[in-house]
Design a protein around this nucleic acid. Structure first.
Lengths: 194, 194
DNA sequence: GTCCATATGTTGTTTAAACAATAAAAGCCA
DNA sequence: TGGCTTTTATTGTTTAAACAACATATGGAC
């Protein structure tokens, strides 16, 4: 499908999944800081040394557990469309809000302490993905301007998801449609339109 | 706990479980004869060659899948009591009826074709377990008489479970309590009691 | 019947994970 | 504070599982 990273040893996939799932499972029951590596590997039926061959420590695992699912969706979304369109923005926004919903319903206690960390992680990932996508479309333009565009996009779309969660009562689809013009045409749309 | 078979590589346990669970899962959906090894290993995320290092073929897997759970219970039950008592008979009977119930509710379509095979497998296993248990209690007696006793017990208790399922409307506990005298004292009880 | 695709077993090699031993850090509590 | 247990992190060795390639065998379709 995605042609990148074909042929990865199934044992690696399985072990990573076992560890991540066990971690999420444990995080639903107790605080992340009270979870030991031993707890995780015991739950995952995996040797403790194996943990360290996949993750550097608990917070590396936290990061990867949180972003893997979300970013898989987002990356696929972008890869599918092959270039950024309004629809791309919409479906990425929906991926993020869905992710936040599942996070807050699944394991609020454990993860709310990391909301700042989570935000930073996701924005950074989004930025990288946007940057790559932009590079393909605008190979000519300067790297720096594309980097900045990617940065603005990631902050904008993540910020929109936060705003939606905190203040808005409309459906996420509706919300992002309202915000779309800003993403596509910038401030100009709102200032000069009549 | 049971002190026997300590220290078995967790990968072996995991793989066996993955394969067996996948097989049961598939057997709920389609006929056993239509399930390929490839189907099973795909579902289990295990290499096909690995299948053959654990089971000789599909019917070996069938046999082990069917008996593993049941026999685990039965063996533990006997191991706990350390000798055969009325209570042992009762709880083994209950294990068998429970097993039959779960089998008929889970995957009737696939397994009803094997009812004869299943009966043979279980009786043979029961016989072996009874024989071992009797050997401990009556080391002095002749092997042959113990073997026969084990044989009679296994047929009796399995037959009782079949009779209960087919003809009886009372609870299994009640049923086996009624049959207990025969197991304990044999025909004599019914003939000479007054 | 032949042809073709798919399923079954088997084998030698490579690799991921288990294991055991180790040293250092972190808690803990008296 | 010192002594104790628990957890962390790393390393060399062993083993189970993945992989690829192979030789049958089975089963439809033509």
């Amino acid at each position: 499908m995605t042609m990148s990273e074909i042929k990865i040893d199934p044992r690696i996939k399985r072990t990573r999944k076992l560890i991540m799932d066990s971690f999420i499972e444990l995080a639903m029951k107790k605080d992340v800081k009270d979870i030991t590596i031993k707890d995780i590997t015991a739950e995952a039926t995996v040797n403790r040394a194996t943990f360290y061959s996949h993750f550097t420590d608990k917070y590396d695992l936290l990061e990867k557990s949180l972003t893997e699912d979300l970013m898989m969706n987002v990356s696929n979304e972008i890869a599918q469309h092959e270039k950024l369109t309004e629809d791309t923005i919409v479906s990425i926004f929906l991926s993020i809000t869905t992710f936040h919903l599942s996070l807050s319903s699944q394991c609020r206690r454990s993860f709310q302490a990391f909301s700042v960390t989570i935000e930073a992680i996701i924005k950074k990932k989004l930025e990288a993905i946007f940057y790559q996508a932009l590079l393909k479309q605008h190979a000519a333009d300067s790297d720096e301007s594309l980097r900045i565009a990617a940065f603005m996009l990631s902050w904008g779309i993540y910020g929109a998801s936060v705003d939606w969660k905190q203040s808005s009562s409309i459906a996420p689809e509706e919300y992002i449609r309202l915000a779309l013009p800003y993403f596509m045409y910038g401030m100009d749309f709102y200032v000069t339109a009549e």
